[in-house]
Amino acid sequence: MNRSTNYCEFKLRVPIGDISDDTFGDIDVIRSLFATLYVTPPEASLDRLYEQFYDYTAAHPNGRKGRGDVLIFASDADDECFMAIDMFDDVTDQMNTVGIELRVPRDCADKVRGLLQSIRSSAEVSSALLEGDLGIKESLAAENFPRHVQGHGGVTIQHAQFFRRGCLVYATSSS
């Protein structure tokens, strides 16, 4: 059996405020996703990481718009499994949405699907929940960063930060 068929990929886009905030941290469903995938979460909440990145970019003419790294959290137990948060903020995005992209073992796909559907149903706005062999693993490989991202404001360079066991282990250069 092909190793890639043992995994399922998911993709969803929701506002950062629907999955994490500065007061209470990451919502229980996000914490459950980290736990299900055996991913040690970062010390800071996703909202804090989102805001820290954009505090840095505030000096740029358009602030956060047209910018945003991808944060990739590798599983502590399975090198093929991860959760990624794409913080790219297009100039037309008034809801501060982030992409949630996951690669999970098939044996926990039903649980992950349910958790993502819970996030989607409670979000103020959301994209469709995509599932299947979406090419996420290949798209988020370290050698693909920095990469060019086309947005409504033109083309921008996107960087990646790779985490394992809650710690940053590799990052592409900052712009």
Rank of each mutant, 00 (worst) to 15 (best):
G132K: 07
D55Y: 07
V70N: 07
L130K: 13
Y54S: 00
G68F: 01
L140Q: 09
C81F: 03
E143N: 14
D69E: 13
A77Y: 08
I100C: 02
P146K: 11
C108P: 01
Q52F: 06
R64F: 06
Q150P: 01
F145S: 05
I100K: 02
S127G: 01
V125T: 10
A59M: 07
I72F: 01
V91T: 04
D69W: 10
M87E: 04
K111E: 14
G68Y: 04
D90P: 00
D86P: 01
S122W: 08
G153K: 05
T57D: 03
L130P: 01
Q150N: 10
L71E: 01
S122K: 14
D93A: 01
Q117L: 14
D89C: 14
S126M: 02
P105Y: 05
T156L: 04
R103W: 02
C81V: 14
P61I: 07
E138M: 10
V125F: 04
G99C: 05
D47F: 07
E51P: 00
Y54K: 00
L71F: 09
P61E: 08
R48A: 08
D89A: 12
D55F: 07
D76S: 15
G135L: 10
R48K: 10
D47E: 06
G151I: 02
D133W: 11
R48V: 10
P146M: 10
R147T: 15
G154A: 10
E131Y: 02
V70Q: 04
G114K: 06
T97M: 13
G68S: 05
I85A: 07
G99T: 03
T57S: 04
G63Q: 00
A84P: 00
L102M: 12
Q52A: 05
F88S: 03
G135A: 09
G151A: 06
D79A: 12
C81D: 03
L134H: 04
L49N: 05
G66L: 07
D79V: 11
L46G: 00
V125C: 05
A141T: 13
M95K: 14
A141P: 04
D69P: 01
N62S: 13
M87Y: 10
A74D: 08
E138N: 09
D86I: 03
S122D: 09
A84R: 00
